[in-house]
Design a protein around this nucleic acid. Sequence first.
RNA 1: GCGAGCGUAGCCAAGUGGUUAAGGCAGCGGAUUGUGGUUCCGCCAUUCGUGGGUUCGAGUCCCAUCGUUCGCCCCA
Length: 430
Amino acid sequence: MGLIEALRGTRDILPDEVRYWQRVEAIAAAVLTRAAFTEIRTPIFEQTGLFERSIGEATDVVGKEMYTFKDRGDRSVTLRPEGTAGVVRAYIEQGLHAQGSIQRLWYLGPMFRYERPQAGRQRQFHQLGVEILGTAAARADVEAIAVATDILRQLGLQNLTLQLNSIGDKGDRQKYREALVAYLTPYRLELDPDSQDRLARNPLRILDSKDARTQEILKGAPSMLDFLNPEAQVRFERVQSLLTDLAIPYQINPLLVRGLDYYSHTVFEIQSADLGAQATVIGGGRYDHLVAELGGPETPAIGWAMGLERLILLLKQLQPLPPATVDFYVVSRGEFAEAQAMLLSQQLRQQGFTVEMDVSGSAFGKQFKRADRSGAVACLILGDTEAETRTVQVKWMATGEQAAIAQSELSAYLHQQQPALKATQTADKG
RNA sequence: GCGAGCGUAGCCAAGUGGUUAAGGCAGCGGAUUGUGGUUCCGCCAUUCGUGGGUUCGAGUCCCAUCGUUCGCCCCA
């Protein structure tokens, strides 16, 4: 075409869709604020080393999915592929640990991963996430999960399942890894090629292979849960009993492992049956050593991130949002009338009304057509006659009734009509 | 990075090698130059994602490329 188009894996979010985003953002902010979480905004790009050290150099995210480049000062810079690393960096660098023993933070913004796009997966995508830093309490895990389920419930989403697992501490994982390799090695040649590869490099990832034969072999494999040390086991049981207390349903999934290196103990995902292969809407877990590994004080923490594109895919399936409407549509024609229309529009907006002023200068008939489409409850009409007499015609669109009102009385008149106005609008939106 | 499918207007599409590329929605203009939702009329793709090739002739066949969809992989 010769036209410049949006890059692969990026997309424009147009006004009709933005309304879904605003809804998610408003509900999430309200739920999080009520739970005493505060928002943090960190840079979209960071030193490459931050992600290499936190996410893990062996992971796919770091190894082959990062947008990394040299800036003009020859620094290696990376567009953030996830949110936790930047939050933890800020937590250490800004001394947040000194400002209170426990920090509850949330963030929202674009993330970047160089992957093959498909449904629910873009190269620039958006995550909303929370982090609770400064406590190893099982209650913190459950609070993080509860706040996630609250957001999803308030959005009205259904068909979601919470998958829960504990991957213990480093020692537990080491022992389990050995046991798993020992079990799988005799089956080596029966595994799918990817899993054969992972047997040496990252055997835990074999657990969530989708290959049918691999899954079958895994049925006889040792379970992570049998390798938890007594303390980790007690901890995991505590998480479960607290979830039960809150009536949050969950499924234990011993095959659930996560792709970022920093997780330990509690890991979880919330998945939807209504998405395709990219079914995970929320994923998270505990990361007790990350802060120290990045140079901060020993600080246990837990967090999760939510994929907003995926969430909005679900929201759209659920309930189309009614179109945006305005309270009043201002129709005007003629030099003086147009000037007065502009002034009146401004005044009404200052009083909290939503007012669309027709600036086309086209015939009255055309302006009324647009008024009709705008969803306005009433039209405010100004022509030469009204300009001369300093009046305005108020036409109620539903009934077609029209009244001449002095411009000086307009806002008083409209305020008086407001109950009827609201009733009409809610009825329209049904 | 791998495999498969698909690209015709802002959107949904018909078209399966032969003169001028259906139709619908939306939009714009008129009937109606001071009154909307209905109706009627008109306009809205020199071109089929892009580039090359085959052919007397290509939206239609071939190759490449870009984009997209589904799956693998990965992850939220």
